[in-house]
């Protein structure tokens, strides 16, 4: 409300002071991305000073492999958060995806491939159902996805009550295969980035962000409430299924409970990466940085030879710092405008 000025400043007030204030404003405006970048840089510097070979392709391959499941899950979560919602059901979907893969793939590559597509389709479908329930019954995303999380987890437990099952040997080779010196995970990351740079420029991508930013304006401009929710949560379910498929290449087994380990970290990675829980603000690049921050913390705890239990503590503190820092930066950016 204090943003409007009654008397306008003369145009081209290119005083040095004005320019400094301008750049300060620009910088603060990007703070939600700059802060996680600085955090990642600091963590990497610390990590690199403690261990040889941190800044090598091998390390990149390893860290990306470790971060990829979270990254895929967080990609879906990012899309939902940009819409201004939240998706807890990805936990159930990831569990269900791994147990389906571990029990249905068999040894026939064609059958495995068919089921892989099937799992992805189930993810998208379940997500779309979330979106439809939220819109049609006018329910809160938190409660709807809490309920579907429970339903999906239960289904996973019925299919495979305890960790186990098996996956084709060729499937598990995926995680270790390399091309041009880069591991499959790094290629996957590049693919994910390519997807994002495509998606965020599509009309759907813009509309999702716009709806998260101001629902009323977006609907007035012709965005369909049902369509946008089905698309948003459908994508989230799809990415959760992809996360499950990737996870099985790493673990080689199905687990009916593993998904819950990714729900809140996926939100945390996105929020550390500067995505606002109120919707409309942020992007996948931030989320990727957030996911790497969480992964590097794990590595650091390992090389520091302290108890691995320090990992959640540090993650929690980083999460709080990131949220507080970007909210303070946002406030000063707003002030520097007036």
């Amino acid at each position: 409300m204090t943003m409007a000025t009654l008397e306008h400043q003369p145009d081209g007030a290119a005083t040095r002071q004005g320019r400094a204030a301008f750049w300060r404003g620009r910088l603060l405006a990007q703070a939600s991305l700059i802060i996680p970048c600085l955090m990642l840089a600091a963590l990497l510097a610390l990590y690199g000073s403690l261990r040889e070979g941190v800044f090598t392709i091998d390390e990149l391959n390893l860290d990306t492999a470790a971060a990829m499941t979270l990254l895929l899950a967080a990609t879906g979560q990012t899309i939902v958060l940009l819409r201004g919602g939240i998706d807890l059901s990805i936990g159930g979907m990831i569990s269900l995806g791994t147990v389906l893969a571990a029990t249905r793939f068999g040894s026939d590559p064609a059958q495995a491939a068919a089921w892989a597509f099937g799992i992805a389709a189930i993810g998208a479908l379940v997500g779309a159902l979330n979106g439809a329930l939220i819109t049609v019954l006018r329910l809160q995303p938190f409660l709807v996805t809490l309920a579907t999380w429970s339903i999906l987890s239960g289904t996973a437990m019925i299919i495979l009550p305890t960790d186990g099952g098996s996956l084709p040997a060729g499937w598990m080779k995926f995680g270790f295969s390399q091309w041009l010196g880069l591991s499959s995970s790094v290629w996957l990351l590049l693919l994910l980035l390519a997807f994002w740079f495509w998606f965020k420029r599509t009309r759907l991508g813009i509309s999702i962000r716009a709806t998260g930013s101001n629902e009323r304006s977006a609907f007035l401009s012709g965005v369909s409430p049902l369509g946008i929710n089905v698309a948003t949560y459908g994508l989230s379910g799809l990415f959760a299924a992809l996360a499950a498929l990737y996870l099985t290449t790493q673990t080689g087994a199905g687990s009916p409970t593993i998904g819950k380990d990714y729900i809140l970290p996926s939100v945390a990675a996105a929020v550390i990466g500067g995505i606002s829980l109120f919707g409309g603000r942020g992007g996948l690049v931030g989320t990727i940085i957030g996911a790497y921050i969480l992964t590097i913390i794990g590595n650091l705890v390992f090389v520091l030879e302290v108890s691995s239990y320090w990992q959640p503590i540090v993650s929690g503190i980083i999460l709080l710092i990131a949220v507080l820092a970007s909210s303070i930066a946002e406030k000063s950016a707003r002030r520097s405008l007036t």
């Binding site: 962000r209 716009a210 998260g212 977006a218 401009s221 965005v223």
Partner: peptide, 16 residues
């Protein structure tokens, strides 16, 4: 105003 705060000026003008 019927604009969207988190989109840019040009995105707002041509939204949809």
């Amino acid at each position: 105003l019927s604009l969207i705060p988190d989109l840019t000026v040009e995105q707002n003008i041509w939204f949809r």
